[in-house]
Computed example of a mutant assay.
Amino acid sequence: MSRSERFAKPEFAPDHTLITGASGGLGRALALHYARKGTHLTLWGRNAERLESVAVACREKGATVSCRVLALNDLDAGIAQFRKDERGRPVDLAILNAGVSDIRPEGALTESVDAVKEAALINYAAPVTLATEAASHMAARRRGRIALIGSVAAHHDLPFASAYSSSKAGLSRFATCLHAAMAPHGVGVTLVEPGYIDTAMSQRLDGARPLLVSPTKAASLIAAAVDRKRAVLVFPSVFLVLKLVSHLVPRALAHRLLRMAKVKQNAKDV
Rank of each mutant, 00 (worst) to 15 (best):
M1D: 12
S4K: 13
S4C: 06
F7L: 12
A13Q: 13
P14A: 06
D15C: 10
T17Y: 05
T20P: 10
A22S: 02
S23W: 06
L26C: 05
L26V: 04
R28D: 02
A29R: 05
G38Q: 14
W44A: 00
G45N: 02
G45P: 03
R50S: 08
R50Q: 09
L51Q: 13
E52M: 06
C58F: 06
C58N: 10
C58H: 06
R59V: 06
R59I: 01
V65N: 02
S66V: 14
C67D: 07
N73M: 01
A77S: 02
Q81M: 11
F82I: 13
F82L: 15
L93Y: 05
A94G: 12
L96A: 04
A98C: 05
R104H: 00
L109D: 10
S112Q: 02
S112T: 13
S112M: 05
A115V: 00
K117M: 12
E118S: 05
A120N: 13
L121D: 12
L121E: 12
I122A: 10
Y124M: 13
E133F: 08
S136C: 09
M138T: 08
A140G: 09
R142W: 03
I149T: 07
S151M: 05
S151A: 08
V152N: 12
A154H: 13
H155W: 14
P159I: 11
A161T: 11
S162W: 07
A163T: 10
Y164Q: 12
K168V: 12
A169Q: 01
A169M: 06
L171K: 10
S172P: 00
S172E: 09
H179P: 09
A181P: 03
M182S: 04
V187Y: 02
L191F: 00
A208C: 04
P210L: 13
L212C: 01
P215Q: 06
T216N: 01
A218F: 02
A218W: 01
A219M: 05
S220T: 00
I222R: 01
A224I: 02
V226G: 15
D227H: 04
D227K: 01
S237Y: 07
V238G: 00
F239S: 01
L240Y: 03
V241Q: 01
V241G: 05
V241A: 11
H247P: 00
H247C: 00
P250D: 11
H255A: 05
R259T: 09
A261I: 12
K262E: 14
V263G: 10
Q265H: 08
D269Y: 06
V270T: 12
V270L: 11
V270M: 09
